[in-house]
Simulated scan of single mutants.
Amino acid sequence: MRRGIRFSIDVGKARIGIARSDPDGLLAIPLETVKRDLESGSHLTRIAELAAEYEVLELIVGHPLNMRGESTPSTEDAVSVAQDLAAIVGAPVRLLDERLTTVSAARQFRAAGKQASRSREVIDQAAAVVLLQDALDRERQHGTPAGTELSTP
Rank of each mutant, 00 (worst) to 15 (best):
M1Q: 01
R2K: 12
R3D: 14
F7C: 02
F7T: 01
F7Y: 03
S8I: 03
I9F: 01
I9D: 05
I9C: 02
V11M: 06
V11S: 03
V11H: 00
I16S: 03
I16C: 11
I18V: 15
I18G: 00
I18F: 03
R20F: 00
R20G: 07
R20L: 10
D22P: 03
D22T: 09
D22M: 11
G25A: 04
L27D: 03
L27T: 15
A28F: 04
I29L: 13
I29W: 00
L31M: 04
V34H: 06
K35C: 06
R36C: 15
R36I: 06
L38M: 11
L38S: 13
E39F: 12
E39K: 13
S40D: 13
S40V: 08
S40K: 14
S40P: 10
H43P: 10
T45P: 05
T45C: 11
I47T: 12
A48M: 07
A48S: 11
E49Q: 10
A51K: 07
A52R: 14
E53R: 12
Y54T: 10
V56A: 10
E58Q: 04
E58F: 05
E58Y: 01
L59S: 11
I60N: 02
G62P: 00
H63T: 01
P64W: 02
N66T: 03
M67I: 14
M67Y: 13
R68W: 14
G69Q: 12
G69N: 06
E70V: 03
S71D: 14
S71P: 08
T72M: 10
T72P: 09
P73I: 05
T75Y: 02
A78N: 09
A78Q: 06
S80Q: 07
S80D: 13
V81E: 03
V81Q: 04
D84Q: 14
D84N: 14
L85Q: 04
A86V: 03
A86E: 02
A87R: 08
I88M: 08
I88Q: 08
A91M: 09
P92N: 05
V93Q: 05
L95M: 15
L95T: 04
L96A: 12
L96N: 04
D97F: 03
D97N: 15
L100I: 00
T101P: 02
V103S: 14
A106E: 15
R107Y: 06
Q108G: 15
Q108H: 13
F109R: 10
R110V: 14
A111F: 08
A112H: 12
G113V: 05
K114I: 12
K114A: 15
A116K: 08
A116E: 12
R118I: 01
R118L: 10
E121W: 05
E121F: 10
E121H: 12
I123L: 08
I123Y: 04
D124P: 08
V129I: 11
V130C: 12
L131G: 09
L131K: 04
L132A: 09
L132G: 01
Q133N: 03
D134G: 09
D134I: 10
A135W: 01
E139K: 09
E139P: 02
E139V: 04
R140M: 10
R140H: 13
R140N: 07
R140I: 11
R140T: 08
R140F: 07
Q141L: 15
T144A: 13
T144E: 13
P145T: 01
A146V: 01
G147W: 02
G147M: 03
T148W: 12
E149L: 11
E149N: 11
T152Q: 13
P153T: 12
